[in-house]
Computed example of a mutant assay.
Amino acid sequence: MTKQNVVASEVTSDINMAIAVAVSKSSMFASAVQKPPAVPYITISRKKLLQNLEISGGARVTSWVDSMRASSPTHHKSTPSLSDDQSSWMLHHPSALDVFEEITNASKGKQIVMFLDYDGTLSPIVEDPDRAFMSDAMRATVRKLARYFPTAIVSGRCRDKVYSFVQLAELYYAGSHGMDIKGPSKGSKYKKSIQPVLCQPASEFLPMIDEVYKALLEKTESTPGAKVENNKFCLSVHFRCVEEKKWSELVQQVKSVLKDYPKLRLTQGRKVLEIRPTIKWDKGKALEFLLESLGYANCTDVFPVYIGDDRTDEDAFKVLRERGQGFGILVSKIPKETNASYSLQEPTEVMDFLRRLVEWKRLSLRRQFRMRRRLEGMKVSLPN
């Protein structure tokens, strides 16, 4: 993973996670007035910020462009050395489809909880992010998945936007890289508390995010193909449709805006530059919050599974490794440094894996039901 251009301070206080009661239950997107959880900041001095955003020398811009180039799958061509690297990488990150039985054996007797990224995981990466639609087959698969396991969508997208793509009210949604979390509008049979889940730890940044969004729209207007997306608690600058020779110019434009906002940080995802608040909150924190909301914070019988394709998903993969529970699955056709345990190559393989998981659970429940009926029959036949 590429290191973020921020300097994290030592934080001694624990993150105070909160479950708030939504004011209105009438809509999936009903807003609630709440005090956000107390979340520590990633501190950075203005002097250091200006050093990090320095563009006159060009060295940092060049570094960013190199990183942008590396994140673009179109630059990974098939070569003998890459093939050898992939074979070696697959030994350490085998296909989740090939070791499916190993995975299900590890989860026996535990509650599986599913966490799914959206772009590149449930839907293919497309040139226009507004047209990243999931297929009807994938939607049907995720709907069945949620019948058997608590299921959450964890995305960098605005929560409203990702919900408009998925259109399943029975799921948990964590938008803006986990900074906007809401539970199912239909209610959940898995959740132990009756209160709806709502978590928005970066609410105070909304005016600033909106201000920077407008500035970026104006600043990047001269770069053909650049698209700025407002994800409510964070911003995305997509460069997948920008000519490579314009990438350096785009980085300069973004950094020239951010130099006046030390409370925002710039990171990079898959063909996208991300602007986020400098709070210590990410997809890993969102995963922990959701597990706590479901009542599995300190349980040994929970088995979280996180599937994602982006650098931002690494925060969740890392949390699972540190917890020693469940595992992460990286969606990628090329070798990448990752904390995930297994791999899948593309969304179609993700759908195959989810379908197999649903079928495995369905058959397991059927066997349990038959066994219970058989035992009940034996009790009835026994003499008093």
Rank of each mutant, 00 (worst) to 15 (best):
K3C: 08
G295C: 12
D136S: 15
D98S: 14
V197I: 08
E221V: 08
F233L: 10
A169C: 05
E204I: 07
S13T: 14
K35Q: 12
M114A: 12
E102N: 11
V272Q: 02
D210E: 15
K182T: 06
Q268N: 09
K189I: 11
F100P: 02
R157D: 00
R276N: 11
I275G: 05
D313Y: 06
E229V: 08
K361E: 13
E229S: 04
K191E: 12
K280T: 07
V33F: 09
S63W: 11
T43W: 05
R362G: 01
C199V: 02
L206V: 12
L49D: 09
V21R: 10
R147Y: 12
P80M: 11
S27H: 10
S87F: 12
L97C: 08
G178V: 01
A215Y: 02
T141G: 06
K318N: 06
D130K: 15
E376R: 14
A18I: 02
C234T: 09
V257H: 03
Y342L: 13
V11F: 05
P347A: 06
I329P: 00
L320D: 00
K280P: 00
V126G: 01
Y261A: 03
V61R: 02
N339W: 10
W281D: 02
E101G: 04
V319C: 06
R270T: 06
H92K: 15
L258G: 08
V350I: 10
V242L: 00
H177I: 02
K245S: 15
V257W: 00
S9W: 06
A146C: 09
Q51Y: 13
S88K: 14
K283L: 01
S107L: 03
A340T: 05
L287V: 12
I329G: 03
N298K: 15
Y296S: 07
L266T: 04
